[in-house]
Nucleic acid binder design. Structure first.
Lengths: 144, 144
DNA sequence: CTTGACTCTATACCTAGGTATAGGGTTGAT
DNA sequence: ATCAACCCTATACCTAGGTATAGAGTCAAG
């Protein structure tokens, strides 16, 4: 598959693919004698993964780390497990934050409880993470 | 409260606060005769909200919209409800994506099922959203 | 064997979201 | 009344993540 087709299928622009390659997110593809890049069909899923992960708030650097988790050989396995565990923490923190925001937004839709004053507002409060020596009864838990 | 104190309490830099003000994310604070900005204590929560929402993948423009939901007067209420409903959609899509990624990461930690080949990898697959005419049995649902 | 659609590299440019610096005024403690 | 530690505006600069352009080569159909 040529770069133009990959770009179309993955919904990105050709320059973006070359940019990802320079950033080490995409492996260097095979080249024809002419220098044209030749991609494998799996690359489509990889590029879509990158775009999706970006929408979820990961930087390209972090996405690179996620991708590298895939390519683990048995030698680096403990390292990979540790990195994956750390990423799970990140992901769960994000889910908690989003759940809290969803709850607040629902309150707004259902009851418009957030009145006309500047007073305590569920939306702003929603993301006010617990800090040390504060107890917050309504902290959202990460659902299974 | 002066800008330096706000910056310290909210964990951002002073220039960032002035930048947010220019972008319309923070209301223009009162000024002393000297021109010094005087903030209310609530502003700390507002700024922290901005930072947290950013980590969750919202742009400053979107965050501005979220904040504006707070300041609804009864006139604009239907509009506010519609916008809030749309934001809930966004948030739920993000939660689904993150849940899928968490599942994949757990698989990696628990079993290291993702072997040494380039073959189908749970991490990459995890975020491969269903497109028309594809059925994906394991699509994550948004938990309540 | 030419023509149109594709690709290559290199370089420049763009937006978002800041961060730093220059040049100057304010405040409050000593 | 001075001095450090603050604040002001304006402007320049920076990184991430692209997007566009120039100038040149490649490929397949007619």
């Amino acid at each position: 598959m040529q770069i133009g087709q990959l770009a179309t299928l993955a919904g990105v622009n050709i320059q973006t693919l070359r940019y990802y390659e320079r950033q080490g997110l995409l492996p260097e593809p095979d080249r024809r004698a002419s220098g044209y890049r030749e991609y494998e069909p799996e690359t489509v899923a990889l590029v879509r993964f990158v775009k999706r992960a970006q929408e979820l708030g990961f930087t390209l650097r972090e996405i690179g780390e996620l991708i590298s988790l895939r390519d683990n050989d048995s030698v680096r396995r403990p390292e990979v497990r540790a990195l994956a565990a750390a990423k799970i923490e990140d992901v769960e923190r994000k889910i908690r934050g989003l759940s809290a925001m969803r709850t607040a937004l629902r309150g707004l839709v259902d009851a418009c409880s957030c009145g006309n004053g500047m007073s305590a507002c569920p939306i702003i409060e929603a993301l006010d993470e617990p800090r040390a020596n504060q107890v917050r009864a309504h902290a959202a838990s990460v659902p299974d």
